[in-house]
Design a binder for these strands. Structure first.
Length: 508
RNA sequence: GAAGGCGUAGCUCAGCCGGUAGAGCAACGGACUUUUAAUCCGUAGGUCGCGGGUUCGAAUCCCGCCGCCUUCACCA
């Protein structure tokens, strides 16, 4: 029991040993019958002392004020304030129990009230310890709702100091590397995590109610197709084959359409071996959905209903703040043709190859040797996207950008595809699925001829083509970037704050 | 991958036109039975991200490396 332990940790280990010397297990165990702090706070607090209700609570010590023979602790748990909320719109009449933020309550520990051992324990408590408390609920003289303890149970000793109760956690790297502390000390982190759960749950419920089947498809692919992205490469030892982490869900879900699953979806992780930015994490969550006998118009209606349901599930109305702006999700959302936007903001027609080339050169883009549609797309990203505050559906894309999409019957240069833009971000991507295996094979070949394999959206996939040859019903398909949706609905500017454990370089 | 910024005590931060490191909270010892940013007295805690250079002397100036942030590139 050194008087000046070398480190903060040593001081806590010292207390741990002293607890053990008292015959107390500092790591606790089963602790039944405790109340959520939020429920305790709802009890009548102003009863005469003799009539105070008995309570048992458990939580983490987040603040401490010692005063001689009486100590005050603040205990925090994850109970939040449960509220019942009636959902409107698509789920009219449904009542959902919505837990909000965590709750904290003050505990008074008096020497007389907790007894000799209890008082000895009280001297050995630190910020960050997890404590069980038995006592009665009332108010202090200052009117603070308080549990007056008569029994203390150590449930876990904390050996490392927690962040400052005032300064809190500011350092972004520290927060990301210690997300568990971030969750405790930055309420908005827990709030975002819970809103994410609620959004995804709403998505599932909405689609389940419409009869879509949720499926799981492989994440290890022999050929990483379905999107234009660089995959992570891995290796299967027993089979001695190269495998890729999936970059999209598309090709397996379409195989299920062939197999007669007429309405399917999957919510799952995809992996892309590309840069990291405030909008990109190497692994992220996609929702992809396919519906037989639908087309991209079907998907537009569905997308609007689905996202509006997600917005409503947060209970904050249809106008949500995002940075300095407000996003108004009130349907119906405008639908604008790609070509019209292009003409409006670039000033030329997208099928006028010479004009497009001049516009690209005027914008300082290297245009030599590039397919006109590639230039069109670059110009669109450069000149148009940032105008799309949205939500807005942009539809009918140049066909050569969309190798898995059915062309318009009356104009094979245009593909039946739309993207949903909100705040300049592509939030959803959908098309009328190409179910013609002959055209599909041609598209694969022409794409492959023009681009390095890793940049091609249409990696040749013979097995997928074989599935198409057996006959896939005409269908609409939709993909939504779940992380981005959560960003937009929770006013979060960086994807790292809607993913609990974003990728960081290892320390040291 | 490129450019710019940042990295000081457990946490939050000062110090940075070179003179050998500070505060608040946390911690340790003591006083206090109704505090709530408790207060008061006392104490301890830092290879100033890592390595090298310039200098009599470097947290401070220069170079390299590592990590984080921002912007750009790739992409959703």
């Amino acid at each position: 029991m050194s008087e000046h332990p070398d480190t903060l940790e040593a001081s806590r280990v010292d207390k741990l040993r002293r607890l053990e010397a008292l015959g107390i297990d500092p790591w606790g165990g089963r602790f039944d019958g405790h109340w959520p702090i939020a429920e305790v706070l709802k009890l009548p607090a102003d009863l005469p002392e003799a009539d105070r209700p008995r309570v048992r609570i458990a939580g983490r010590i987040v603040s401490r004020r010692d005063g001689g023979r009486v100590h005050f602790l603040d205990l925090k748990d994850s109970s939040g304030e449960p509220t019942l909320r009636e959902l409107k719109g698509e789920h009219e009449g449904t009542v959902e129990r919505v837990p909000d933020l965590s709750s904290r309550i003050q505990v008074m520990v008096g020497q007389k009230q907790v007894g000799e051992t209890g008082w000895a324990v009280a001297q050995l408590l630190d910020l960050g310890d997890i404590l069980g408390v038995d006592g009665t609920f009332g108010r202090t003289r200052r009117g603070e709702p308080t549990v007056f303890a008569d029994g203390l149970t150590i449930l876990c000793k904390s050996l490392l100091p927690h962040p400052d109760k005032w300064g809190g956690m500011q350092d972004i790297e520290y927060r990301l590397r210690h997300r568990y502390l971030d969750l405790i000390y930055n309420p908005e982190t827990l709030d975002r995590a819970r809103k994410r759960v609620r959004i995804i749950r709403t998505m599932r419920r909405y689609l389940d109610d419409l009869g879509y089947l949720e499926v799981e498809t492989p994440t290890l692919h022999a050929i990483a197709g379905g999107a234009a992205a660089r995959p992570f490469v891995t290796h299967h030892n027993a089979l001695d084959i190269r495998l890729y982490q999936r970059i999209a869900l598309e090709l397996h879900l379409k195989r299920l359409l062939v197999g007669g699953m007429e309405k399917v979806y999957e919510i799952g992780r995809v992996f892309r071996n590309e840069g990291i930015s405030p909008r990109h994490n190497p692994e992220f969550t996609m929702m992809e959905l396919y519906q037989a006998y639908g087309d991209y118009r079907t998907m537009m209606d569905l997308t609007e209903g689905l996202i509006v349901a997600c917005v409503r599930s947060l209970g904050e109305g249809l106008k949500l703040p995002f940075g300095p702006r407000t996003i108004d999700f009130t349907p119906p959302w405008p639908r604008v043709a790609y070509a019209d936007l292009f003409r409006q903001y670039v000033g030329v027609a997208l099928d006028d190859a010479a004009a497009v080339r001049r516009a690209a050169e005027a914008a300082g883009m290297p245009a030599a040797g590039k397919h006109p549609d590639v230039l069109v797309h670059h110009l669109f990203e450069e000149k148009v996207e940032h105008h799309l505050e949205g939500p807005v559906f942009v539809y009918d894309y140049p066909a050569s950008l969309c190798p898995l999409t059915k062309r318009k019957r009356d104009n094979p240069a245009i593909a039946e595809r739309f993207e949903l833009y909100v705040q300049g971000m592509e939030l959803a991507n959908a098309y009328t699925e190409l179910n013609d295996p002959i055209t599909q094979e041609e598209t694969f070949r022409t794409q492959l001829a023009g681009l390095p394999e890793e940049e091609s959206m249409a990696r040749m996939d013979e097995d997928f083509l074989r599935a198409l040859r057996h006959g896939m019903p005409p269908a609409g398909g939709l993909g939504i970037g779940v992380d981005r949706l959560v960003m937009l609905l929770t006013n979060t500017q960086t994807i790292r704050d809607v993913i609990l454990f974003p990728l960081l370089r290892p320390e040291k």
